[in-house]
Design a protein around this nucleic acid. Structure first.
Lengths: 229, 229
DNA sequence: AAAAATCATATTGTATACAATTTTAGCCTC
DNA sequence: GAGGCTAAAATTGTATACAATATGATTTTT
């Protein structure tokens, strides 16, 4: 639309993006404290901006803010974990159907590049990166469906899913979502709405049943290490 | 849970609540500017708090923030208006079903009090208040269904619906939702999940088809008058 | 007179200073 | 050594000061 435009992303967006990515990739774990000074020093901004970022992430469900105690990466309860996947089951199958009816060849190509990157990350043993890319894959489908509001909701749900997986994922080995994602792409390519809807439904159920919804606490993380700064 | 507890709602929550209510009741119309100084003076807080409040409302979709230009009550586009009701159609029927399966007698009683208040407001000619109560009615159903996440999503959708109605409502006369709401309560009382789901689906479709999705601009509002301060 | 440029004002963006609260460490008591 | 009190330090909450930008009036130019 404006090819030469220097896609200016604000300082705030950058901080939210970096922190969000780190949480999605499990470099910062649920329960970790996000001190305002520390974050501000890392990114070279004042606490004013950091507080905006943390509040934005709190609105997305990624962060919990406790008055006078600070911001922590959220720890979804077992009930919340259930609700996250129930909500996804309500939104995503229908969205996959809409995407199947609208997907262009470029859309398909982009999804395939996504899958490739996801696979590569797994090969390199970067499970966190693969998980993050998997979330991006689901977001892409919502984008193809051209439903901005549902896309927003899904962003929150995928963020929370990442936390749920960090807390309740059963096995130590990584999620292997390639097959399900491949099948979905095929349905999208064929314009098979029914198939896409069913595949997505099954995929989400599959993910959910691999959770072990028991209480336990995760190890804390050093923020500086997680952000590599 | 703690009967004597002084339900302390923070200063910030109070401002968000007051502004949100004013928008829901159409005392402040889409496009109206919310100057930080003005809001701060009205509520007796500094711009720091006001900015938090406006950003929170932006996250809910009630406010649009334009860099260096300020915050305005959001003006959903026609496409967004459509998406709002599509999303509601995806979430609310299922939620009504869940509510029908869980509603207690107290829940029913509360809903009926709601309807009464709504009716009274209409009798007094306070269309905005009635609209706000109608939104509360839908929120109550989500609460009864005991789905916090969907409740959050629905809050955003109902907020946006209020803006959509302000912009695109066809007739000058008020929405008459009493009948649909009464029928819904009956289904909930009977524990009739199927009925509740169908009634909600029809109710939302009914609302949507009464919109006139054409462009036009609304009159601006004085903030002080709207908040009565 | 219309359009453009300029300056003054108003408003928002960010950093900093100070207040309020929590956390931590030290010390005492038992 | 465990528990509890006190004081210091660390951290967050809010207001204010200053910088950057946008807005609106005035003047200048054509």
């Amino acid at each position: 639309m404006n090819p030469g435009m220097t896609l200016q992303t604000s300082n705030l967006d950058h901080i939210v993006g970096q922190l969000t990515e780190a949480v999605h990739e499990h470099r910062i774990l649920p329960g970790a404290k996000l001190r305002e000074d520390e974050v501000g020093e890392i990114f070279g901004v004042s606490r004013t901006i950091v507080r905006q970022a943390l509040r934005a992430m709190a609105h997305e469900g990624l962060v919990t803010i406790e008055r006078n105690r600070g911001a922590f990466v959220a720890r979804p309860s077992i009930k919340q974990a259930r609700e996250v996947f129930e909500a996804r089951a309500l939104l995503e199958p229908q969205t996959a159907r809409a995407a199947a009816e609208r997907a262009t060849p470029e859309d398909i190509a982009q999804l395939e590049r996504h899958i490739t990157a996801e696979h590569d990350a797994l090969d390199r043993g970067e499970a966190g990166v693969a998980l993050k890319l998997s979330g991006d894959f689901h977001m892409s489908i919502a984008r193809i469906a051209d439903q901005k509001i549902i896309e927003d909701f899904l962003r929150q749900l995928i963020s929370r899913s990442s936390l749920v997986i960090a807390l309740y994922w059963r096995r130590r080995n990584a999620l292997c979502e390639s097959h399900a994602h491949h099948a979905l792409i095929n349905a999208l390519r064929m314009g098979d709405g029914d198939g896409a809807e069913e595949l997505m439904k099954g995929h989400l159920l599959d993910l959910f049943t691999q959770l072990d919804l028991r209480e336990h606490d995760p190890a804390p993380t050093s923020l500086r290490d997680a952000l590599g700064k």
